[in-house]
């Protein structure tokens, strides 16, 4: 199965997850967008050698995942799939940055390894939070919220169309691939054959777009997507924003693990 096929299957799963009514889904999507942005900015604003100080931020994705009933295994698998670029670039840090930084007894750890660990922690935190929010909100609600926060209408409509038709065209492409493989073997086709294959997919896409457009106009589509679940800002949303932003500010200002560690190791000379 190709990466895109696996991605589409994952997308469908995310869609199913988001369709359920969880405590996380009941929070206004705008609140989740704002808090998640605050979270991201707080996490990436740390010094490049910060590792332990970042860990209190794991509370946010963890609570999101629990409140949204997002399976931890799904999150973990997506994290692994997305990891290569950050890991590849981060791996240069231990090679380039060799001064000692951490010391426990006689063993020392270089600054490069510390900053590499920091990159990994940042990666896990930012990606897990984004995925948990999306899986606990759903594309339609999220796009409506983006629109109300000021994103161009054409862009949000575009996002929704793309999201919907990715499944349709993805299925078509994978069927074409299977058909070609049954007739021509598993080898990738030549450039000429590729042009014809992808070209036909594109032609079908065009024709489908025309049919969709006519059907939607016939049903009164005017460029606006409407939702039955009206978004209303409640006190719970305000509390959500205030509570989390307060927690982020505190965790950013005070190195909680360092204090905790000092407390726990106070007896050790």
């Amino acid at each position: 199965m190709s990466r895109v096929e696996a991605a589409l299957r994952d997308l469908r799963l995310a869609d199913t997850l988001a369709a359920r009514d969880t405590p996380l889904a009941r929070i206004d999507a705008r609140a989740k967008v704002v808090v998640t942005l605050a979270f991201l900015v707080a996490v990436v604003s740390f010094d490049r050698h910060a590792v332990a100080a970042l860990l209190p931020f794991a509370l946010y994705p963890a609570v999101l995942a629990v409140r949204g009933d997002v399976p931890a295994r799904w999150l973990g698998r997506k994290l692994l799939i997305a990891a290569p670029f950050a890991v590849a670039v981060g791996l240069f840090n231990p090679l380039l940055d060799r001064a000692p930084m951490l010391a426990i007894g006689d063993a020392t750890l270089s600054a490069g390894w510390v900053s590499f660990a920091s990159i990994l922690v940042r990666f896990a935190l930012t990606v897990a939070a984004a995925l948990a929010v999306v899986a606990g909100t759903g594309m339609h609600t999220l796009c409506a919220a983006l629109g109300r926060l000021g994103a161009p209408r054409i862009f949000t409509a575009q996002l929704l169309f793309l999201y919907r038709y990715a499944f349709v065209l993805g299925g078509e492409a994978s069927r074409m691939g299977t058909a070609r493989m049954l007739r021509g073997g598993a080898r990738a086709p030549s450039l000429a054959v590729y042009g014809a294959l992808a070209g036909h997919l594109l032609l079908r896409a065009f024709e489908r777009a025309e049919r969709i457009h006519r059907a939607m106009v016939a049903r009164g589509f005017d460029g606006e997507f409407r939702s039955l679940r009206a978004a209303r800002w409640t006190g719970a949303d305000t509390a959500f924003v205030a509570g989390w932003c307060g927690y982020f500010a505190a965790a950013r200002a005070v190195d909680i693990p360092q204090g905790l560690g000092r407390l726990l190791t106070a007896g050790i000379p």
């Binding site: 992808a198 997919l201 065009f206 969709i212 460029g223």
Partner: peptide, 17 residues
């Protein structure tokens, strides 16, 4: 807009071929 949406999905799906 619908054409744009479908073409976006195409770019996405074409990565399978």
């Amino acid at each position: 807009v619908p054409l744009m949406g479908v073409l976006g999905a195409f770019v996405f799906a074409a990565q399978m071929i």
